[in-house]
Simulated scan of single mutants.
Amino acid sequence: MTTNAHDWFTAAVEALAEPQGQRVWSIIVSFLGDMAQDDGAGISSAALTRVITPLGIKPEAIRVALHRLRKDGWTDSKRRGRGSVHFLTPHGRVQSAQVTPRIYDPTACTTAEWHMLIAAPPSGLELLDALSEGAPDGVIRVNRHTGLAPGPAPAPMSDLLIANARIEHVPTWLQEELFPAPLRQSCASLDAALAPHGTPPALDPLRRACLRTLLVHRWRRIVLRHPRLPVQFHPTDWTGESCRTKVFELLEQLPQPSLSELETAEPLPMTLDIPPPPDAAH
């Protein structure tokens, strides 16, 4: 590892760190979803610690976060030698698989065909609520009684008025409701953080894993917090598509290391020293 590569890695980690501090359980979920989602895939405590301590996370915070994830049914562990191996449970794999296509889709939404669903209480609202809580990119609520969904109108459903729709204009109030200010600020922050770094130098597997985890974590926390919508729905200050381009350009240059490479990697020094938020591990 050359001095230039080490400096580039350190600068990138510092730039990509969460401005509000790291939520350790969420970072672990991002790592497992990116590199250990397959059935039977797992990582030892020692290797996981090597991946995320350079991000400014203390080993004790990792232990607390793993306890929380086991309690919530996301991960499990088994003894191997003197240590433990951690892996996603079937529930955790299902949850990760549901959002993986959205997280790793490098293309912008270009949906042109839409349909509208209008409900009246009480049974129609219950049905609309159920549809809205289904697939991540299913029904988008415009207000309490109205939903918008991609594709042609489905078969008739009791208690819902259903109509094909062509989007002619999206008002500012709806754009800002779909993409609220804190989300726009988070996206702009990541977009700015990615701008100055350019092509990464040759990095060893552990440093690639550190950066991939941090990058996927930041992007995941943005892309899963808004519906997938074409440009006419975007506020004027939404930087999502610029950010998407930068995220996938960098991911392409950080090949995913194997878990076996991470198990045998030498530890890195802690790169960051950022105090976590009060509930970071919990």
Rank of each mutant, 00 (worst) to 15 (best):
K71E: 10
L127R: 10
V51F: 05
A36K: 01
L66A: 06
H234W: 15
G83I: 09
L148E: 00
D279G: 03
L178N: 04
G40N: 04
R102I: 08
R212L: 13
T2L: 13
M270F: 03
I43N: 01
T199H: 07
G92L: 08
P278F: 03
R70N: 05
C109W: 00
I140T: 15
A5H: 12
P150T: 05
P201M: 13
I162G: 05
K246L: 15
E113G: 05
S132Q: 09
V231M: 05
N164P: 09
E176K: 15
A155Y: 00
T49W: 02
L117E: 07
H91W: 11
P154T: 01
M35T: 00
W238Y: 05
E241D: 08
A195T: 13
R225V: 08
L190P: 01
E261T: 00
W74E: 06
V139K: 10
P267S: 04
R80L: 10
N164F: 06
W25V: 09
P171L: 14
L55H: 06
H226E: 11
R208T: 11
A281R: 03
S84I: 13
G134T: 11
I103T: 00
G138I: 12
P121W: 12
C187Y: 04
A97M: 13
D204Y: 08
V216H: 04
G198T: 10
A108T: 05
A112P: 00
T10L: 01
G73S: 07
L160K: 09
A5I: 13
A193Y: 01
